[in-house]
Simulated scan of single mutants.
Amino acid sequence: MRPDPEDGTTRRPRGGDLPWAPAWLRAGTRRVPARWRAGGPAVVAGRALLLVTGALLALTVWVLAPDAGDTLVLAGVSAAALALLAGSAVLPWHRWPVRAALVFPLTVMGALAVLGTSTEHLAGAYVPFFVLCFVYVGVFLPPRTAFGLLPVAVPLYLLASDDLDLTVVVRTAVVVCTWLIVAELLAQLARRQRAAADVLVRDARTDPLTTIGNRRDLEDRMTRLAPGDTVVVCDLDHFKQVNDTHGHAFGDQVLREFGAMLAAGLRRDDYAARFGGEEFVLLLHASGTGPAMDVVDRLRQTWRDGGGATTFSAGCATLDEVTTAEQALVAADAALYAAKRAGRDRTRSAEAADGWGPRVGADTVRDLSHEF
């Protein structure tokens, strides 16, 4: 996951995920069709802001007994909001900074200003919606965004209010302070919650000994593999003897050093995880089997040059249009055992593993594991 350039928090892999939000909000978001979850949490919440304000207007406006002119203005404002709502499902939000979602609270505040200046019965009735807009800004947009919104929000608030007098001026000064306090407090709280959620996610997906990925994280990463990507399974040779001779503390240090070597020796887009015990899995993107074996050979040389306590064997399998990631993992594991049978401290590809193909069955691997 990459840091968000706007606020330093971690951007989620799926736009509708809000792990720091209340359970009811997360559950409701998951029920929204994927098309309407596009754009990230700020955009999803912006759509909700439009819907909530529209629903409250529809439920309460009849109490104010609007005349025909008021109804016409209200219909025009509603049509504009619905057009933005529909357009938000197709806009390329991923290309824009997160503050592009300001279009949602600005639309709400602009609509309230139009109602305040163009109607007789609705002026001033819905200015509390400005607070809701700043709550949205505080929760879903980076800190200090509210300060940048003020030069637009204050004139729109005055337009949405009743006739301008000294009372309105004093009230405006009070509500501006309230907006800023509420928005900034919520922004700091949301930032802390996101940071705490990031720590939990990172801990849940990181092997505590080697600090590279763990099996849970590996399973998620494997769902993103494509044809041409290569799965490599590495296993430290005679690791039990290392533990028996030098003790488990020394063995743990060997695992830590091996994990650090993998993390430092791979390309930025490649990935390493501890699969279990002394076994590690590498995911090499767009490499092909030949280049992947070259990468492993380079890692082996680095490990030797660094004085590795033991050697390692490896097996490679490259995905194609009909090979799944799980099948490639099984094939790479089978190739690993072929490397061990050939004398260890070497790499074998699935195609060269004594006739095992990339779609070898899991039972074959289990049978081979008993030999080692």
Rank of each mutant, 00 (worst) to 15 (best):
R2T: 14
P3K: 13
G8F: 03
R11S: 13
R12S: 10
R12T: 09
P13G: 07
A21D: 09
L25F: 13
R26L: 03
A27I: 10
R30H: 11
R37F: 03
A38V: 04
P41Y: 07
V44Q: 08
V44R: 03
R47D: 06
V52K: 03
V52L: 15
T53I: 04
G54K: 08
A58H: 03
L59D: 09
V63P: 00
L64C: 02
A65C: 02
D67K: 01
A68C: 00
D70P: 01
L74F: 06
L74I: 03
A75L: 14
A80Q: 11
A81L: 13
L91Y: 15
H94S: 15
P97K: 13
A101C: 05
V103T: 14
L106N: 08
E120G: 13
H121S: 13
V127R: 10
V131Y: 05
L132A: 15
V135R: 01
Y136D: 09
G138Y: 05
F140Y: 15
T145P: 07
A146P: 07
L150Y: 02
P151W: 11
A153K: 05
L156K: 05
L166A: 14
T167L: 11
C177L: 15
W179Q: 02
V182C: 01
V182K: 01
A183H: 01
E184S: 05
L185E: 13
Q188H: 15
R191I: 00
R192K: 12
Q193E: 14
Q193P: 00
R194P: 02
A195N: 03
A196M: 07
A197V: 07
D198R: 12
L200D: 07
T206E: 05
G213H: 02
N214W: 06
T230I: 08
T230E: 08
C234K: 04
L236W: 10
D237M: 12
K240R: 14
Q241S: 15
V242S: 10
L255Y: 02
G259H: 07
G259K: 07
A260Y: 04
M261E: 12
A264F: 01
G265A: 10
D270M: 11
D270Y: 07
A272H: 02
A273K: 10
F275Q: 07
G276H: 09
G277H: 12
G277F: 04
E278W: 12
E278A: 13
V281H: 06
L282F: 04
A292L: 05
M293L: 15
M293K: 12
L299I: 13
R300A: 15
R300I: 04
W303G: 04
G307V: 07
T310R: 07
S313W: 04
L319G: 07
D320Q: 00
T323R: 10
T324L: 00
T324F: 02
T324N: 00
E326P: 00
Q327Y: 09
A328L: 10
A335D: 05
L336I: 11
Y337M: 11
Y337T: 11
A342D: 14
R346F: 00
A350T: 11
E351M: 04
G357S: 13
P358S: 11
P358Q: 02
A362T: 14
L368M: 12
E371M: 03
